[in-house]
Design a protein around this nucleic acid. Sequence first.
DNA 1: ATAATTTGACCAAG
DNA 2: CTTGGTCAAATTAT
Length: 360
Amino acid sequence: MENSTGCKHRSLLLAELARALQLAVQLAAHLDQHSPVESSKSLASKTRLSIEKLIHIAGLSTSEAQQQFAFPTTVPEDPLQSANKNASAGNFDSVFHSSCNNLSKKRKTLPKKKIQVKVGSGGVAAALDDGYNWRKYGNKNILGSKHSRSVLIFGFHLKRSYYRCRDRNTKCCFATKQVQRSDEDPQAFDVIYHGTHTCCRRLPVPTTASISEQGRRRHQPIRRLHNDHRLQQQNKDLLMDFQTGVGLDAHESNVAFQLGSVTAKAMMPESINGYSSQPSKPDNCCFGRSPSTSELIDISGSPTQLCFSEAGLEPLTSDSYVSDSLTPPNSAVDADITLLELDTQFGDFSVLCSNLHYTM
DNA sequence: ATAATTTGACCAAG
DNA sequence: CTTGGTCAAATTAT
């Protein structure tokens, strides 16, 4: 029984993969032939939707996939809209709505929507911002995570956070979501939606494509979220959690930590804390001390990449990009290097991206 | 003062 | 007995 369900799930994935590939090929052909912009846009949009659907299917258990994709023509425009559409198809939230008012501490066994968001240059909070107003009402330590080892190294436990719609009382909006770091990808977050919103969205939803777009624009000027102090606060909190996790505090200057397979060892300048938790200062001024010259370096602006290596901590500019600036001064040294990317202007941070091994 | 988040307790499902 | 989901008091931020 489970085998046949699993096969169907796999078939669903493969069929959608083939469709995504076909769309991508068509799009490439359109671009080569200088076809009308509108048709290219349309193809690009279809491709994006197909990929979003793939991500969604991949995130579902086999039974959920069967349940939710009984109507395979339903292509989600975005995670939340998809939830709404399935609801209108009577396949997702009719079930939920029939019992959503039965609020209790009972474990939820109702249908849910799971998506995965990657942290882009906009930071964690921006990546998790789906345009709705959520209120956190609890969190739990996650047990049995694949990353529990890294988590223990960090000295804290991975948590799942529980959010409910802020319009719960005013508009009887019983949508909830859970957020936790992905087991597969430490840079990604799993977001599980329960129920649909009866309230209105605050902002356009950042689609998976736009999230990728944010990633692509990593080195471009950012003109967003200036007035969203709550997002900035969330970013700051997440950063503080991270700092606590790796043992960074105002008095510590040495750090060695591991995130998954990524290891970093560094002598931290005392002013490392100046790199962070300073969002939205009027002049966005952030300084770090160069390990080689002891000069104060202005790393204001966003995003800033700092290279942790045994040589110390150095800011990277877009001019001196990874391949150049991470070349170890002494080629005989084995270096585990990671990048800590800090969006100092907004207090965003993300730990990225590579396990750059130099063995020469 | 008010709003938002954190945290431990509680209850039910597995 | 363990774990998931929620509540509500306490704490923290604005």
